[in-house]
Design a protein around this nucleic acid. Structure first.
Length: 464
DNA sequence: GGAACTCGCCAC
DNA sequence: AAACGTGGCGAGTTCC
């Protein structure tokens, strides 16, 4: 294809995509049922132990007295009533419906060790009931076949269910190991995972044609740049652990939320969270550094007393971010929103049309999120077609929005990896000339017969 | 006894 | 004026 995709191309993408995903569903993956059962029991014992200790505390005794027969340590509703109505604690955070929040953030702000223990049981339950339980329930003879849907998401992304393969823990290492330990390749095979790096921002480059965004994405490091501005640093060395946290702050506390449509008032909180665990190369804690720069006032214990100067600072940076640094992006947002208000839709680069009632952030996000996923879907489909045509033993078995997972035979690994690399980084751009920045992929590999938690970086063979 | 709802939490 | 985008799902609760 040389021209801009049409509605027919969009249809064809979905049609072929559904077939490729059906093949992956049919392949499925191996699940270690004996391990799941053992781990479930282990977690149940740990929950019981924590709950036994908690039962001895005055806090839980009071809770029991109030609810009597109906007492349930796992009831969020009861917990909220006890904390905010019975004990009269003032809630620092509210839920959407206006009640006192009892999520991890809210409970951590209350100085009661019992609540930390309660959070531990919540985490264990999540692991046991949402993941391990679902794996055992959904497997048939040790094989798991999660669904991958293309008809449920309004941005034309995918979803997964029964079980959802797209939200298995990754960031928390302990939980990651517990859950991913259950997922195995076919005997004598190994799991290869290939994901696009920063594909959404690259697709944003294609829509907006913002020269600064393109430069930063292809040659620069916007997360570092923003961390330097936000935390008033002279430079940032990302190989230094303390400064790496500050770069993470620039990324997860600023760049991502800003691109999703958040504003400085929320971002400042996230940035300060990262600053708590960040420090400079001379060992100055980041909060002390911000205080030296006059952006924070700290009390004797080093806690934040006043962050209003920092918030004002973030406000200025936000203004610069959208009106100077990425002003072309801002122009795209304005015209896209105005066109939507006149016509009632926005078209995706991949031939789809997003229409219906949308808020500004939703509307501006949809074409980017959708088309970014379509890069994965097209590549996934192409790799599946090649694998079948060439009668590979290796197979695709899952997908997580910007990542494809293969069950590979060691003898084919090199060729498979090379093919995936070529499809994602060369063939795709040939197909879609609207992709005006290079796309890049990263890969991880698990050992032969190794479970999914055992992955480590794998250097993809060069193409040509 | 099930549908619909809230809340919390996992992923990208 | 507006105030983080897309999902799935478990548990508890309320409503019918």
């Amino acid at each position: 294809m040389k021209s801009i995709p049409t509605r027919l191309d969009a249809y064809q993408l979905i049609h072929n995509g559904v077939l490729a995903l059906a093949h992956a569903e049919q392949s499925g993956m191996r699940i270690d049922v004996a391990y799941c059962e053992k781990k479930k029991k282990h977690i149940t014992r740990r929950i019981a132990h924590i709950e036994e200790e908690l039962a001895k505390t005055d806090f839980i005794k009071q809770w029991k007295k109030v609810f009597g027969q109906k007492f349930n340590m796992n009831s969020n509703h009861q917990l909220g009533t006890i904390l905010y109505d019975v004990m009269g604690i003032e809630s620092l955070k509210q839920t959407k419906s206006g009640k006192g929040a009892i999520d991890e953030e809210a409970l951590s702000q209350i100085d009661m060790p019992e609540l930390q223990q309660l959070l531990k049981t919540r985490k264990f339950r999540k692991t046991r009931d949402t993941y391990l339980d679902a794996f055992v329930r959904e497997q048939v003879d040790g094989w798991l076949h999660p669904f991958f849907n293309l008809h449920t998401v309004k941005t034309y992304r995918s979803s997964s269910s029964d079980p959802n393969f797209q939200n298995i823990p990754k960031r928390d290492k302990e939980t990651m190991n517990t859950c991913r330990r259950a997922i195995l390749p076919r005997e004598g095979h190994q799991i290869l995972a290939v994901d696009f790096s920063g594909v959404e921002v690259r697709i944003a480059c294609c829509y907006t044609e913002d020269p600064k965004l393109i430069y930063d994405t292809v040659h620069g490091d916007m997360h570092r740049d923003m961390a330097i501005e936000l935390y008033k640093l002279d430079s940032l060395d990302k190989s230094h652990p303390g400064e790496k946290n500050l770069r993470q702050g620039g990324k997860n506390g600023w760049v991502f939320p800003q691109f999703y449509g958040d504003y400085y008032g929320n971002c400042s909180n996230g940035l300060l969270e990262w600053a708590r665990i960040g420090y400079l190369t001379d060992d100055t804690p980041a909060l002390v550094h911000l205080s030296d720069k006059g952006l924070l006032k700290l009390d004797k214990n080093g806690n934040i007393k006043d962050d209003s100067a920092f918030i004002e600072h973030c406000k200025k940076i936000e203004d610069d971010f959208w009106n100077v640094r990425y002003k072309v992006y801002t122009k795209w947002k304005k015209t896209t929103w105005e066109t939507y208000q006149k016509k009632g839709y926005v078209d995706l680069k991949t031939g789809f049309r997003y229409s219906g009632i949308a808020r500004k952030n939703e509307l501006l996000n949809a074409p980017i999120q959708g088309a970014a996923f379509h890069c994965l879907l097209w590549s996934f489909t192409r790799v599946d077609e090649i694998a079948r045509k060439e009668k590979w033993d290796s197979r695709l078995f899952a997908q997580i929005h910007d990542e494809m997972l293969l069950d590979t035979h060691p003898d084919e690994l090199e060729y498979v990896a090379k093919t995936v690399h070529r499809v994602t980084c060369h063939d795709l751009q040939k197909e879609w000339p609207w992709i005006i920045v290079p796309l890049e992929v990263e890969a991880d590999l698990c050992p032969v017969d190794g479970s999914w938690n055992m992955k480590s970086g794998y250097k993809l063979p060069e193409v040509k």
